[in-house]
Simulated scan of single mutants.
Amino acid sequence: MAHDDSVQADVLISEVGPRDGLQSVQATMPTEAKFRWIDALVAAGVREIEVASFVPARLLPQMADAAEVVAYAVRQPGVTVMALVPNLRGAEAALRAGAHKLTMPVSASRAHSLANVRKTPEDMVEEVRAIARLRDELAPAVKLEAGISTAFGCTLQGLVPEDEVIRLAAMCVAAGADESGLSDTVGYANPSQVRRLFRRLRSELGSRAGAAHMHNTRGLGLANCLAAWDEGVRTFDSSLGGLGGCPYAPGASGNVVTEDLVFMFEAMGVRTGISMQKIIAARAPLAAGLPGEPLYGMTPDAGLPKGFGPFH
Rank of each mutant, 00 (worst) to 15 (best):
H3I: 07
D5M: 09
Q8D: 09
D10M: 05
I13R: 00
Q23D: 11
S24Q: 14
Q26D: 10
M29S: 05
P30G: 05
A33V: 02
A33L: 03
I38E: 01
G45T: 12
V51L: 10
S53V: 15
P56A: 13
P56I: 14
L59W: 15
P61F: 14
M63F: 11
V69W: 03
A73P: 04
A73Y: 05
Q76L: 14
Q76Y: 02
P77T: 12
G78Y: 13
V85F: 06
E92W: 07
A94D: 04
A94S: 10
A94N: 04
A97S: 08
G98Y: 07
L102A: 03
M104E: 04
P105E: 04
R110S: 07
S113H: 12
L114M: 15
K119Q: 14
M124I: 00
A132E: 09
R133T: 15
L138P: 00
P140A: 15
K143W: 01
E145I: 11
A146D: 06
G158Q: 14
V160F: 11
E162H: 08
E162Y: 04
E162K: 04
V165G: 02
V165F: 04
I166D: 02
C172Y: 08
A177E: 06
A177V: 09
A177H: 07
G181K: 02
G181M: 09
S183Q: 09
G187S: 10
G187I: 09
G187Q: 05
Q193Y: 11
F198W: 11
R200D: 14
G206T: 13
R208I: 00
A209R: 01
G210W: 05
A212N: 06
H213N: 06
N216V: 09
R218Q: 14
R218L: 14
G221A: 07
N224Q: 12
G232C: 05
S238W: 09
L240C: 13
L243C: 06
G244H: 02
G245A: 12
P247E: 12
Y248G: 00
Y248M: 00
A249E: 13
G251R: 12
G254L: 03
V256A: 01
V257H: 03
F263M: 00
F265L: 03
E266S: 13
A267Q: 08
A267D: 09
M268N: 01
R271K: 14
T272C: 02
G273W: 11
G273I: 10
K278M: 05
R283I: 09
G289L: 01
L290A: 06
G297A: 14
G297R: 01
K306Q: 12
G307T: 06
F308D: 03
P310N: 01
